[in-house]
């Protein structure tokens, strides 16, 4: 967490906008992006794809003891989130009531600071998720429509 300026900078499309990729051969999504499709290997064809900004919690935990870089955060929730197109993401869950965080809960992507670096260091930003009311089918359709534009 300390330095790694270029490492974090390189990941900006992935962390800010959840840019992953998609294999046009086996139709699988990958997040983060991969160099080759592990299913099709060299027969696959990967194209850039923005991951859905909504998903469902597959598993979660409340972390009470964080690693270095997270000393300021106290407790925080981490979840494995199914993005619905073959890709999963591990992320913090924020702005959500404890009783709403459960397996199967719908979540939406938020833009937050990740970890807390030293006061003078570069700030790292990225995705976290919050629990939302499950979308109705109409809402999902409307969202797809909007994303097309």
């Amino acid at each position: 967490m300390s330095d790694g300026l270029a490492l974090n900078w390189r990941r900006i499309p992935e962390r800010y906008a959840m840019k992953g990729n998609h294999c046009t051969n086996c139709k699988q999504d990958y997040f983060p992006s991969r160099m080759i499709c592990p299913n099709c290997r060299r027969k696959g064809h990967l194209v850039s794809k923005d991951m859905p900004r909504i998903g469902k919690i597959v598993s979660y935990t409340k972390v009470m003891v964080g690693p270095s870089g997270f000393e300021n955060e106290g407790n925080y929730y981490l979840a494995l989130i199914d993005l619905g197109s073959g890709a999963k993401v591990l992320s913090q869950i924020v702005d959500s009531d404890e009783q709403d965080i459960h397996i199967g809960a719908s979540v939406k992507k938020m833009f937050r600071k990740i970890g807390e670096v030293e006061e003078k260091g570069a700030i790292t930003y990225g995705y976290k998720f919050k629990v939302v009311k499950p979308l109705t089918e109409d809402q999902v359709e409307a969202l797809k429509e909007k994303n097309k534009k």
């Binding site: 800010y16 300021n72 955060e73 924020v94 702005d95 938020m110 833009f111 937050r112 600071k113 990740i114 807390e116 700030i123 930003y125 976290k128 969202l143 909007k146 534009k149």
Partner: peptide, 25 residues
């Protein structure tokens, strides 16, 4: 703002709503 929020994260969230809700490219 929570400890992981600052003016940049607030700016991004507000902008994203403007873009998504109104279908701006």
């Amino acid at each position: 703002g929570a400890s992981d929020e600052d003016s940049a994260t607030i700016a991004v969230e507000a902008s994203r709503r403007a873009i998504e809700d109104f279908g701006i490219t």
